[in-house]
Design a protein around this nucleic acid. Structure first.
Lengths: 232, 232
DNA sequence: CGTTTGAATTTGGTATGCCAAATACCATTG
DNA sequence: CAATGGTATTTGGCATACCAAATTCAAACG
């Protein structure tokens, strides 16, 4: 029995790299922030939190730095971590950039995506129409639709930056997506995007993605006017 | 003498926040990387380096994380920091995104920049024509030209992300800009950008910026073919 | 000589202690 | 009552020690 066949006899020989405590803490915190168990603007007391999590301050600081990078945590003038609490203007600025990133992704996907990938994207849009589910499920499908386009663009820095922006905007996008009267518009806009993608028309796709994100901006502004105080 | 006039009698009462050791170390490392005193691919030994810098490992780790965020340092599979050594394909991907960011900046600047800001940008382009200086001086003016457009866009997340991409691409952009035969093209492309900006034509400005960055991609590829081994 | 194994050394993640800066609280003063 | 000053407490940055994982090096084996 040679080395080759030992390997082929085993399905999966890779040991996953051990996740650091910082990474695990960041995951926990990310979830708490995105579900608003940690409300926007909340100070994050390092010692208290590290004790509650059963880890030392060092990996917690690392975790907070990771989340700072994603825009979920910010540091005040005295360097104390707080849960980010973006103003409407900041959200608008972020979504404007996100729109440009997604427009670029759409354009690149027209050039480099496989037919299978495009078909998958179209199927996602269709599934949202026929089986949207509740608000959270619909939102997840929405985010996966966008994510599939960005992945089909095959540009790693773009995907990374998009991920960062999406994390930062996740909450606001969810609140926007949750509006029942919003769903029809979303689906229509997705159709426009898919039509342009299937035609591999980069310009039309980019424009459709920008328009989609522009209406997201408008809807987030509406949600802001309805319910949440202005952030710091 | 009232409190108001104590403040007005003093020109500058703000005490600058103390810079952390991590920030200072990051600056030093950034410079060493960008000037290739630390060559691409070089392992960064934490203990040795912290000792050489006269600080402990803690702020050095923080500094390295900052530089990771900027793409100047990457962490290998064993979590050891190395100086990033981007492949041509990675550089191309990064510049593609940078092009989209700068296109957005141009478009936004057309909408929101003051006449003074636009005049300043035009003056910068002119100064590069009449007083370009040596390769490094010309390059600095070039980067300041681009930076002024991004600043005039008044979108903080865009400016942040642009800064990150610029840091990551600084070296490659410098090597490209250094090509003597490149200068004429650069100046012509800047002219096109300025013309579109002064006309506040967002679409034309965005297109001119994209075209400019596309020729940067081509030039970087040429430099790569000429001289540097392929990165990891 | 090439390969394997085991021990020594190096290195990254983490815990913890210390010091300086920031904040909170209380008493005093006008 | 509001403002000010002083003290106690909390908090962030940093240094250092420790442990486990990774790497290096030397010896043994085929």
């Amino acid at each position: 029995m040679s080395a080759g066949s030992i390997l082929s006899a085993l399905e999966d020989v890779q040991i996953a790299p051990r996740r650091s405590l910082a990474e695990e803490a960041a995951d926990k915190l990310r979830e708490a922030i995105l579900l608003e168990h940690l409300a926007p603007g909340t100070p994050v007391p390092e010692r208290e939190l590290s004790e509650a999590m059963g880890i030392s301050r060092t990996p917690l600081k690392d975790a907070l730095r990771l989340l700072e990078m994603e825009g979920l945590i910010d540091y005040g003038p005295t360097r104390r971590p707080r849960v980010a609490n973006p103003s409407l203007a900041t959200l608008r600025d972020n979504i404007t950039v996100l729109g440009a990133l997604e427009a670029l992704a759409g354009e690149l996907a027209c050039a480099v995506a496989t037919a299978t990938e495009l078909a998958d994207i179209a199927a996602r849009a269709r599934r949202m129409e026929t089986d949207g589910g509740d608000a959270l499920a619909f939102f997840h499908q929405d985010m996966n639709f966008h994510g599939a386009i960005v992945a089909a663009a095959r540009n790693a820095p773009l995907a990374d930056t998009h991920r960062q922006y999406n994390a930062r905007l996740w909450r606001a996008r969810f609140l926007s997506s949750r509006q029942i009267d919003r769903r029809e518009n979303t689906l229509a806009e997705h159709d426009r995007i898919v039509t342009a993608l299937m035609a591999r028309d980069g310009v039309a796709t980019a424009n459709a993605m920008r328009a989609h994100l522009r209406s997201t901006i408008e809807n987030i502004a509406r949600v802001h006017a309805d319910g949440r105080g202005q952030g710091g």
